[in-house]
Design a protein around this nucleic acid. Structure first.
Lengths: 214, 214
DNA sequence: TCCCCTAACAAACGATTGTTAGGTAACCAG
DNA sequence: CTGGTTACCTAACAATCGTTTGTTAGGGGA
């Protein structure tokens, strides 16, 4: 179930090699000859499978984007309390990461090297993805599960920033698995949204500094 | 007070132009001729002021690293409760960001393009920086201010990931200033460290999944 | 006035970039 | 055996890269 894209075997190997290099050195610093060398090929040989360097990047990015949406959307729109759903979404998001760290990393950090057209498409896609988190947070506020003082958009950016930084530092084989980290992150984040705290508001209303519980 | 580095006027302009381009397009995708063009110069003319492209990057990164340490260390080692200090550190960190978004962004995201030697130096510097946050979080746990179940290292990475993503999406002139965002972020994060919650622990002790409060 | 320094220019260096063209060995269907 | 397709190679293309060179115009200080 699921793999819609039937991909020529060699093509997947090329995308895998490219993902590893793009995520490790960055798209601009990676050469077509680098990718070819990782597969013991000559540089020009890649063009039997790929139409251009940018289209190769686009294929990786598009596929990863679809994975994230497919994993998270049903949870956001599914049943259950907001906290419960949000926790599941975080686990699902990190699950997609874990299912292909390098490809996901390319999606998260190299998409800006796409040409204008594809870049704008991805930008919209990412905005819609973030909006799902905002939505669930807002629903949690309406149901009283979450602190109504929080800004849903800012809170969504906050968690997504944290989980999306995972590929930058987490190395499989470390003390904590990605799924364990996802759980701790969800704990921290949902704790921050909890309405229980007495006077968390050192910054409830907009005013920069130098104040003492008015 | 503070500005130790007396810099030739032109040199600063070059670093500013380079910072804008490095942070916008990335180091590898930025040409010396791009930087020169931003100052209405010819490509080769830069080499009257700069010894190499990489040394230019190194100068920007080193200066930003110093700024972050100088702003945060006295707060980490200063007086006050852990929560209070942590909040001040977050504000100071974001303050350095606000004081030079592009230069800070180069420090945060382009340092990996440094050559091996300088890159390793920066890696150590960043580890020490992160350790200050871990330290204050651990102190807060010992004093009972913070939930003892949290992992200080993971919590430090969590906040720093969130604040360091700020240059990627925040545009000055938006609805919230960087300092306001810093306050909201501190609220969310300190709320997440609060020990008050009843049974936050869906993931309290290290074990991957499928368990139910033993 | 002479000298040197700074800051810039135009032009070129070799190396490397993404990409294309033409050729060849291996395989498979008829 | 034949014809075509697939997957790769070698070689080269124009463009662009970081950097070096030789030179020039201007501006003080002796």
């Amino acid at each position: 179930m699921s793999t819609r894209t039937r991909m020529p075997d060699r093509r997947r190997q090329i995308e895998d090699a490219a993902s590893a290099l793009f995520s490790g050195r960055g798209y601009a610093a990676t050469t077509m000859r680098d990718i070819a060398g990782a597969l013991d090929l000559q540089g020009g040989s890649l063009y039997a499978h790929v139409t251009s360097k940018e289209s190769l990047l686009a294929a990786i990015v598009d596929e990863a984007a679809e994975r994230f949406h497919a994993a998270v959307r049903p949870l956001a729109e599914g049943p259950g309390g907001a906290a419960e759903r949000l926790r599941a979404m975080i686990h699902a998001h990190v699950g997609v990461l874990a299912g292909g760290l390098e490809r996901a990393s390319v999606y998260l950090y190299e998409w800006r090297f796409l040409g204008q057209e594809r870049r704008e498409r991805i930008a919209h896609s990412r905005a819609a993805y973030q909006a799902m988190f905002e939505q669930v947070i807002a629903e949690g506020q309406n149901s009283g599960e979450f602190d109504p003082r929080a800004d849903p958009k800012l809170a969504a950016i906050f968690v997504l920033s944290a989980v999306n930084a995972l590929p930058r530092w987490h190395r499989p084989g470390g003390p904590l698995s990605l799924d364990e980290v996802a759980g701790r992150y969800a704990d921290l984040f949902l704790g921050g949204l909890d309405p229980a705290d007495p006077d968390r508001g050192t910054t409830p209303t907009p005013a920069p500094s130098h104040r003492r519980t008015p």
